[in-house]
Simulated assay, not measured.
Amino acid sequence: MVANFQSKIFIPLPRAKCYRVRSAVLERLCGSLEDYYALLGPYLAELRKVNPRSTFSIVCDREFTGAPPIFKRLYIGFESLKRGFLDGCRPVIGLDGCFLKIFLDGQLLSAIGTDGNNQMFPIAWAVVEGENFNSWRWFLGTLCDDLEIGEGYGWTFISDQQKGLEYALRERVSFAEHRNCARHLYAN
C-alpha cells in the first residue's frame, strides 16, 4: 500500500504515518471502539427480550470508581441450542479456543456436541480476554450451570491441551471424564 502510494505521488511517506492516517479514516467512517462497546448492553437486552430463557452474560471491569466499564468477557448460550443438545446428543462436549484475528486480540471459546448424524452441534461460545485458567473456569462454570451438569457424573469433555483448561475441568466437573483430542495428540 505504502509503496504503491509513494510511486503515484513521488513523496516518501513513513509507514507509521500511513497506518495512523488509515486508522483515523477508519474511525471516522466506522466509529470508535467505545461506540461499538456501548452497543453491547442494548444488544444483550434485545437478545434477552427475543430469547428470554437463553443465557447471556457479560463481564466488565472498572479501573477505578467512576471510570467507564471495560469489556472483559461475553457468554452466549441460546435456549434452542441447549434444548437440542440435551434432547438429541450424547453427553460429550468438545471444548476449543481460537484466536480472534482482530487488533483487539482476545479468544473465542466454544463448546460443541455431536448429534445423531455425527455432525457438530454448537452449544455455547464466549469471547474472553485470553486463554487462561480464569477464563476457562468462568466459561466452564457458566456452561455447566446452563446445562445443569453438576459435578460431571456421566459427562465427557474432549479438548486439546489448552492453557488452564485441564485444571479448570478438574475444579468445576471433577467427576467428568476428560480426554484429549486424538488429532491434536497425533499432531504433537
Results as ranks from 00 to 15, higher is better:
74 L>A: 11
87 D>H: 04
91 P>M: 05
59 V>H: 07
102 I>G: 15
52 P>Y: 03
108 L>C: 11
83 R>C: 04
86 L>P: 06
100 L>S: 11
57 S>L: 08
89 C>T: 01
65 T>W: 02
68 P>S: 07
55 T>A: 07
36 Y>T: 12
47 L>I: 13
92 V>T: 03
43 Y>G: 04
91 P>R: 08
38 A>Y: 12
73 R>T: 01
81 L>K: 11
41 G>M: 09
48 R>H: 12
93 I>H: 01
53 R>K: 13
70 I>V: 14
57 S>V: 09
104 L>E: 02
56 F>R: 10
47 L>W: 05
84 G>N: 10
44 L>R: 08
98 C>K: 12
97 G>R: 05
44 L>A: 10
75 Y>P: 01
54 S>F: 01
63 E>D: 11
37 Y>Q: 08
96 D>A: 13
60 C>D: 03
42 P>N: 13
92 V>S: 02
44 L>Y: 09
42 P>V: 14
102 I>C: 15
74 L>V: 12
42 P>L: 06
69 P>A: 06
63 E>S: 11
59 V>G: 00
46 E>R: 15
58 I>Q: 09
47 L>N: 12
96 D>M: 09
91 P>I: 00
111 A>R: 00
35 D>T: 11
56 F>C: 09
69 P>S: 10
73 R>H: 10
85 F>N: 02
81 L>P: 05
53 R>L: 09
60 C>G: 07
87 D>P: 00
94 G>L: 15
46 E>M: 15
63 E>C: 06
76 I>C: 06
50 V>I: 15
61 D>T: 07
46 E>A: 15
48 R>F: 09
81 L>E: 11
51 N>Y: 13
93 I>W: 01
101 K>C: 11
104 L>Q: 04
88 G>K: 08
65 T>M: 01
106 G>Q: 02
51 N>A: 09
106 G>T: 05
51 N>V: 03
88 G>H: 04
84 G>T: 09
49 K>D: 03
87 D>W: 00
51 N>D: 15
59 V>P: 02
103 F>S: 14
58 I>G: 05
87 D>E: 12
102 I>E: 10
107 Q>V: 13
35 D>N: 14
42 P>C: 10
77 G>S: 13
61 D>Y: 08
97 G>I: 03
76 I>E: 02
84 G>L: 10
110 S>K: 00
106 G>R: 01
60 C>L: 10
